[in-house]
Each structure stands twice: as structure tokens, then as C-alpha cells.
């Protein structure tokens, strides 16, 4: 009987030690300690022993039960703690994941730009990419034979229809169709007959226009300062430099402190410490007259920026042509 008890105890402890889940443990508990369990049955057989052996056997059997109880408790604890570190899954396996597509860097830069202006209450408008001479030039105070037309090399469809050389025709179309006050941004493609390391014949611009009763040059500075600080960072300096666009007066180029060298002078900024990022100005009265607004009643400002340029500065892209090659080795970096 004592040998049988010892054998049962060892069997129970071995099985408990090997148990891998809670279900097995509960099965083992009933197999050994349940009403019909093996240890319980042995204890019940105490009566069959000679009287002098009974107390000792009873004590041994109870001890065995306690040992098994303890082993079960321990095993439960062990299972709750989870498997040992060296017995778990291969944690170094790369993750299982769906393929992630990327938005084109031009789209991403465009979104950064538009986000600032839409939060300022600018409406997003799109107008045609193929335009008449009137919308692309003449209404913007660029009469035929004006030397300023040399500033932009134009793709012609016929004498009167062109690929828009800038997104500025949107100003005319929007003002023709709406009364002031208004504030809009117009993202889109523009085309110039130019192709080299720093020019692609197609590129993206965002045009902006704000017109109201008393909009001043100081307001233009305010809005564009907000824009630069939100897109490039609050600590980036900017300057407004007098320039010329036929459809604004005064006109200003906006330069920001070089984001590469922090204004120290480097190859990207041509050692000047400044980078030109957009053109702007107060809407020329002739433009208002061309859309039927009274320049004595309204004033406004307009601006336009190259989106590729902004993407290049934000992400350190050094070759404009990469934007239109659709090389996945490029696109998947953003």
C-alpha cells in the first residue's frame, strides 16, 4: 500500500509538471484528488490495513494529497505566468501586414499647404488646365506684345488657347463668378515650355486670392507668415522682396531662411542663406476692372507657389525630375 501510494504520488507530480493548460490541470485534479480519484481511493482503503499501520498511512496519504495540491497550485501559477521566454514564438519574425501604398510627395506637400489655408477659411477651387489667352494672360494684365510675356514660355494649342502657365487664371474665373469678399486657394497643374535639370514642362502650383473691403499689404504679410511658420516651422525667418508680376502691385517674392543651412549659406541657397518659395502681391486694379469689380471698393492680395519646390525643401529632394518618373524606389520613400 505504501509503495502504491508512493507510485501514485510520483505519477501525479510528473503529470502535473507536464501539464500545458488549465484544462489538463483540472482533469488531473479530478483524476487524483476527486471523489473517485486515485489518491482519494487509496485513502479510503486505509481501513484494509492493520490497525497499527493506519495512522502512519493516513498521514502519508494526506501528505501526498497536500503535495499534489501544492503542485497543482504551482502549475496553475506557472501557466498564468505564460510560457518561459525561451519557449515562446519566434519574436524576431517580421510582422504580417498588408501592403501600404504611398501618396505622391506632390500630393502630400499639397495637402500640407492646403490644410493651412482651409483652416483659415479659404475655399478650394479647381479650374481648367487648358485656358484661353484671356484667362491666362490678358485678364491678368498681360496684354499681347507685353515684354512680361517673355517671362513664361507658353505651350500653345492655337493662337488663342494655351496650356495654363500658372494657376492664376483661377483668380479670374472665381472673381467673374462670385462677388467679394472671397478667399480661395486653387491647387493644380501648370505648364511651361522648359525642360532641364531645374525645370519640368509640367509642375504643380497653389494659387491663393483674398479680396475684401480693406485688405492691405500688411494682411498679405500676415497670412503668408502664418503659412511659412506652419509648414516650415515657427523659427524659420522670412522676407518679402519687391518684385514684379503683371497682375499684382506692389509685388513681392517671399524668401525663407534656408532650411538646409539655417541661413549660413550653402549650395541649395546659392550661398545667400535665402530660398525663394513664392510670389505674391496686391491684386492690380486692372485685374479687378477686368472681372467687373470696382477697384475703389475692394482690394486684395494674391499669391502662388510651386508645390514641387516645397516638397524638395521639406524632404531634401535634390532632383526635380524624380517627381514625374514614377519610380517606386522614389515614391516609396514618402
Amino acid at each position: 500500500m505504501f509503495a502504491k501510494l508512493q507510485e501514485t504520488l510520483e505519477d501525479a507530480l510528473a503529470q502535473v509538471a507536464e501539464a500545458a493548460d488549465a484544462e489538463t490541470l483540472s482533469r488531473l485534479r479530478s483524476r487524483f484528488l476527486g471523489r473517485k480519484g486515485r489518491l482519494t481511493s487509496l485513502l479510503r482503503q486505509t481501513g484494509q490495513l492493520p490497525a497499527d499501520q493506519r495512522p502512519a498511512f493516513g498521514q502519508a496519504a494526506n501528505q501526498a494529497k497536500q503535495q499534489v495540491e501544492a503542485a497543482l497550485a504551482q502549475a496553475k501559477e506557472r501557466l498564468a505566468a505564460g510560457p518561459a521566454a525561451d519557449q515562446g514564438p519566434d519574436v524576431t519574425l517580421p510582422g504580417i501586414r498588408p501592403r501600404r501604398g504611398r501618396l505622391h510627395p506632390v500630393t502630400q506637400a499639397m495637402r500640407l499647404v492646403l490644410d493651412v489655408f482651409t483652416r483659415l477659411g479659404f475655399d478650394v477651387v479647381q479650374t481648367p488646365e487648358v485656358e484661353t489667352d484671356w484667362y491666362c494672360f490678358e485678364a491678368l494684365n498681360l496684354p499681347p506684345d507685353h515684354p512680361a510675356r517673355d517671362m513664361q514660355d507658353t505651350f500653345y494649342i492655337n493662337d488663342n488657347v494655351v496650356l495654363r502657365t500658372h494657376t492664376s487664371p483661377a483668380q479670374i474665373r472665381v472673381m467673374e463668378a462670385n462677388q467679394p469678399p472671397l478667399r480661395i486657394v486653387c491647387p493644380g497643374k501648370a505648364f511651361r515650355r522648359d525642360s532641364d535639370v531645374t525645370h519640368t514642362p509640367m509642375f504643380h502650383q497653389v494659387e491663393g486670392l483674398m479680396v475684401g473691403a480693406d485688405i492691405a499689404f500688411a494682411d498679405l504679410k500676415g497670412i503668408l507668415t502664418t503659412f511659412v511658420h506652419q509648414v516650415f516651422g515657427d523659427d524659420v525667418p522670412l522676407r518679402f522682396r519687391p518684385s514684379f508680376f503683371p497682375f499684382t502691385e506692389p509685388s513681392a517674392e517671399v524668401d525663407i531662411g534656408c532650411v538646409v543651412c539655417r541661413g549660413q549659406g550653402c549650395r541649395v541657397c546659392g550661398q545667400t542663406g535665402w530660398l525663394e518659395i513664392l510670389g505674391s502681391g496686391m491684386v492690380d486694379p486692372n485685374v479687378f476692372i477686368n472681372v467687373g469689380y470696382d477697384p475703389d471698393e475692394v482690394t486684395g492680395f494674391a499669391f502662388g507657389m510651386g508645390v514641387e519646390r516645397i516638397a524638395m525643401l521639406l524632404w531634401g529632394i535634390d532632383d526635380l525630375r524624380l517627381f514625374f518618373q514614377n519610380d517606386l524606389r522614389f515614391l516609396r520613400q514618402f
Binding site: 477659411g121 479659404f122 475684401g212 492691405a216 500688411a218 494682411d219 504679410k221 518679402f240 522682396r241 519687391p242
Partner: peptide, 17 residues
């Protein structure tokens, strides 16, 4: 141009369509 102040325009707070 540097001497012209930087200011925030005042406009009607209308949500664009």
C-alpha cells in the same frame, strides 16, 4: 517692405462651401 507690419486680416468668419 520690411517696415510694413505683419498683421492678421479681419474678415467675415464664413465657412466656405
Amino acid at each position: 517692405f520690411d517696415h510694413i507690419p505683419v498683421r492678421s486680416p479681419v474678415a467675415e468668419l464664413a465657412a466656405p462651401p
